[in-house]
Design a binder for these strands. Sequence first.
DNA 1: CTGTTAGCGCATTCAG
DNA 2: CTGAATGCGCTAACAG
Lengths: 350, 350
Amino acid sequence: MDNRSTGGEPRGRKRHRDKGRVTLSDVAREAGVAPITVSRALNTPQRVSKQVKARVDAAVEALGYVPNLIAGGLASAGTRVIPVIVPSLSILTFIEVVHGIQQTLESAGYQMLLASTDFDLDREAQLVNTVLGYSPSGVILTGLRHRPAVIERLREWGRPVVEIMEHGDDCIDMSVGVDGHTLGRSMADYLAGRGYQRMLFAGSNMERDYRARQRWQGFRDRLTELGLEAGLLLEYEQPASYRIGVEALDAALKMPEPPDAIHFSNDILATGALLEAQRRGVRIPEQIAVTGYLGLELGEFLNPSLTTLSVARMQMGVEAASMLLARLAGETPTQSRRNIGFNLIEGGSA
Amino acid sequence: MDNRSTGGEPRGRKRHRDKGRVTLSDVAREAGVAPITVSRALNTPQRVSKQVKARVDAAVEALGYVPNLIAGGLASAGTRVIPVIVPSLSILTFIEVVHGIQQTLESAGYQMLLASTDFDLDREAQLVNTVLGYSPSGVILTGLRHRPAVIERLREWGRPVVEIMEHGDDCIDMSVGVDGHTLGRSMADYLAGRGYQRMLFAGSNMERDYRARQRWQGFRDRLTELGLEAGLLLEYEQPASYRIGVEALDAALKMPEPPDAIHFSNDILATGALLEAQRRGVRIPEQIAVTGYLGLELGEFLNPSLTTLSVARMQMGVEAASMLLARLAGETPTQSRRNIGFNLIEGGSA
DNA sequence: CTGTTAGCGCATTCAG
DNA sequence: CTGAATGCGCTAACAG
């Protein structure tokens, strides 16, 4: 085993590639202890004497040691990485949730691996497979609907899984979200209560975004129950944009029998409509009322301010991450399905 | 050495934990080849006979094999992970860049590890250390300014590094961004050309965001060169929000000698100001002009539409990732420092 | 509290 | 074109 550790020609003949990187063993040698002791001093300091801990810390400092998390992950099958799988990074909703997740995870020393499915469940299935290849400590994904293979694989995986955005009866492991149907029903109730009669639902990307469809269904069903005109739907294929909001307002006003209120599937569309109304001199809410969904800060500053269903997105992220972390810390949560609820913000637009 | 591999009591006594997970060796056994051959069939199919390739593929399919990227990473010191380090996830600019990066990376089979520094260079240094522990294939970070240790470590690291957002003389390895001073100067030029005399710069979070300060410096310097009143600055500690824009407009109008134009350090602030002006009946741009920086879609729909400096953020992300990928593919880029430039969008607000 | 031993799952030598 | 040996850097099991 060639003990000539002196003379140090750095040409490590046998090593795959000499990164010159300081390893645990280097620290161990420096501190005069066994490698495993260094490992313990670093990961579970309470199982090591103060003396040793101090020596190890000094050695770490002196050599500039940085743990190789990959190696640790291989050995312990857990990498302190949490994949977060969302449908899209161009949609504000997800961004804010992701933000909450990231903050919470990072402050607990976990890293977030972010991936997007583009609303494609097959792509999601593939991504889940891929990210599981990183031996993550847990997984966060979006929605309650997944390919059966995903559900099965994650269930038997045995590590914490949190599904976000949606609230329902059944989840893989844990969930935090809102119930889309209730959301839609609430807005129908509110508008009906304000005396509106012909309410139009305008949405974008609904083909792919089934949660938007759920809101629509709740909205429609409630209208039906109330004996009001139901089923007025304006649907756009593209993802949400101010432009689509503009177009929707235009289309609504051109209808033979125009609606007296439009509930948009998100605040982006509603904002576009509001600004366009302003530009054209269409009076809101007198001529037509406008409401949204999200509770973006912007809505409060529009003229008139936007009536919208607000969901605590950042908090949803924080809670999702917290549940995950709690489980990783060995706690058994009292509640594994969390309904984050929502809030109707009354603006001047309806 | 206990050769009794027969009899298969699944109680793997010696294994750390039996995840029941299918490994490369399982596939090899199934296909009747050596493990290394499976590895080659999967990673470098051209170095394997068609026959073997087919057998391996079949075995992979049959067993549902998913590669353990951690193990692969340990062995080959490269994990197909790209850490992306940005100052904040609550700022739209970064989100869009991140989006571009993510799309590009993911379509090339790489995963993004996203972390944020909260504009703290020490935190950045610590994060760089941490993420290097994942043996990433490359790194993307924000700005050209870093702690010396970060620069040194990344330089000698030997893998591709891209710095985004900023353009300057010197970078660690590669960079894609814009030059803040030029941005500021351009807007000063534009406003001066339109005949404005007293221009105020209003910014938020400038203490921490040195790139915003660079824009301010460029703006001020150019005004000085033009012999105009320079140095009018309204600074808010908080991060950008519509609210701050509102406050800034109010403060500006209350100044003993109010400015005739305000250039905001981003479109969020400018939008807040514009909407507030609308609410109060302050005429824009006659009474006071308003401009921004970013080129958010929203600006186009405001009344009046917003004059702003637009930067192709998504494209910046795409280019950053592409440069990185090109290098990983062994190409030598012709240009390692890329100035993405910008675009002055003329709206009605100035 | 500390050390010994073995091996996580794969890819890199080097031989055939 | 294929295979055998070896080790990436670290930690789970046992001892002591």
